[in-house]
Amino acid sequence: MEALAHIEAKINEFLKELESPLVLALSANLQRGKMLRSKLALQIAGESEECLLLCAILEMIQSASLLHDDVIDDALTRRSKPSINALFGNKNAIMLGDVFYSKAFCELTRFASKYPEIPRIIANAVSTLAVGEMEDVELAKSFNDEEAKYLTMIEHKTAALIEAAAYAAAFLAHKSREVAEDFRIYGRNLGIAFQIIDDVLDIISDSKTLGKPALSDFKEGKTTLPYIYLYAKLNDSDKMRLKNAFGCDLSPMEQDWILENLQTQGAIAQSIALAKSLGNCGIEAIANHSCDKLIQIMREMIERDF
């Protein structure tokens, strides 16, 4: 935990350099999450000043993406607390996200001479992440029943930065390009599996644990993987019923019907099975690199309940 505190301190240092009391005041209300990308980088590259810098950059980029995400989704909470857009409005949330992005890229230039691969890896990931955000918005326009489209979107929106964290950290640890590729595969699989489990938790976790009401994704117009699997198993009449419920405030009866079918039709179990399969493939990619802690991280992210 000490390393994570150092990362937080480094982010605060970067923000203070901007000499903006407004930025500091708004940033003080940010809800920091699991810091998965930092934990990943630290396990691969070790706790050096260079790795702490990389982690601070990754966390600032992640915060920026979430600030923008909350505006796009009209989300009023983030981890059970009011979101920045709820507290200070959409304009401030967007601009604070821009501040975090631009400051992160400014600090990223420090790696250019010694580790030229790292700025390109991170920059490409941010471009991919933005594409994923656009794909998410496009998919939300109607009920999506295509698994491939959804998996592509979460690979871009969620997995890209986790993949980049593992890949960049491997270069920071002076791994060969071939070995770095193994860590990249691990990171990508971790990212996709992580998002699938998030999708499942939106359905099966109670609202207190999750920090938002159950079935929030579906009500907000997101056809996540369990609903795609459920749709494929329903008869024509029930398929229409599920589609008609998409993006709506659900009555207790309709919510119970969806929850019951997600369980009885095996859509939840099928989603978890895919996450576990991806996790195992990620673990296999690094099997020859003595990475017990990374195996543990993968399993914890798949078996978590929040």
Rank of each mutant, 00 (worst) to 15 (best):
E138K: 08
P116V: 03
E13W: 13
K175S: 10
A273S: 05
V200C: 05
S127W: 06
N280F: 11
E117W: 13
R110D: 12
D98R: 04
S216H: 08
L201W: 10
N92G: 07
I295F: 00
L274Q: 10
E107A: 03
K39N: 06
L210S: 06
R304H: 11
I162A: 01
S216A: 10
A287T: 12
E17C: 08
G191Q: 01
I122W: 02
V179Q: 06
I228K: 00
V71L: 14
M153A: 04
S38P: 03
G282A: 10
K233G: 04
A86C: 07
L24F: 11
F246V: 10
I154L: 04
I72G: 01
I121G: 06
K39P: 01
D305F: 13
L53M: 15
P82F: 14
M153Y: 06
E163P: 00
A86I: 04
V99F: 14
A93F: 14
C51F: 13
I258C: 03
A166R: 03
V179E: 04
P116S: 03
M95P: 10
C51E: 11
H174F: 11
P213I: 10
R188F: 12
A170N: 12
Y229G: 00
A104H: 08
L172E: 08
A28V: 09
Q255L: 09
E300I: 05
